[in-house]
Amino acid sequence: MLPEGTRLTGSSSFADYLASTAPELMPGAASRSNGAHSDLAPHATTIVAATFDGGVIMAGDRRATMGNVIAQRDIEKVFPADEYSCIGIAGSAGLAIEMVRLFQVELEHYEKIEGTVLSADGKANRLAALIRGNLGLAMQGLAVVPLFAGFDLETQQGRIFSYDVTGGRYEEHSGFHTVGSGSVFARGSLKKLYSRSLTEGDCVTAAVQALYDAADDDSATGGPDLTRRIFPVVSVVTSDGYRRLADEEVGAIADDVIGGRLVRPDGPAAPLN
């Protein structure tokens, strides 16, 4: 038998349907207590995104930390949201991954029910609503702060949206953005490396450089792991859709970056003026 409520006409939102029929499955629904818990659950760290002519790239390091302990070395923090967008997560890893799963179903659900894809702004707004739903836990130290990027099929360009814990949604017009504990260092690095004329490949190199700089100064961000061959997750979204770069491709770029750092550990020098 089709479950109660499935045959009622309602909204095209899976999250709304879930909240009304199975609220216990909403991300973070189980825990409602007082006090700060930020050290009890793994935290995911640095994500960078940058646009180029014809698309956008997003990259994330592979480390999750729990207090001073490295909880996982090969966690993945960049996911496809649908065919033309991707989402990277920083903050409380368990909650964030659950939120990504819900967001993925949300977009696919809308697409199937309505027979058309959401606009880029529509997707960004839905994500803002999901983050706002997590505000209670964010106040206890279990915040989720994703970075959303996608290829806008209407304007034919890559776009980046950042968020705060209250669900505030901000479009980044500078062409790049970073989130997570190492984001200040990664942003400083990208400021010097990024320009709008970069190609897709250049953007990937700049992102790997920025993650290296973040790992250099932030203990919660992992650098390229040469012994285990663990490299950042790098995704590219263009008019052809979402594509995750193969480990070999990222590995080759990371090897180049590290080769340069052996000569100059602080990375490429920017001209003084």
């Binding site: 089709l2 479950p3 006409t9 899976f14 349907y17 029929t21 199975a22 199937k112 029910i113």
Partner: peptide, 17 residues
């Protein structure tokens, strides 16, 4: 159409849970 939407909801809910 009513049955289709119910099916999509059922499938998405099961896949999510």
């Amino acid at each position: 159409e009513n049955l289709r939407i119910a099916g999509v909801r059922l499938a998405d809910m099961r896949g999510y849970a």
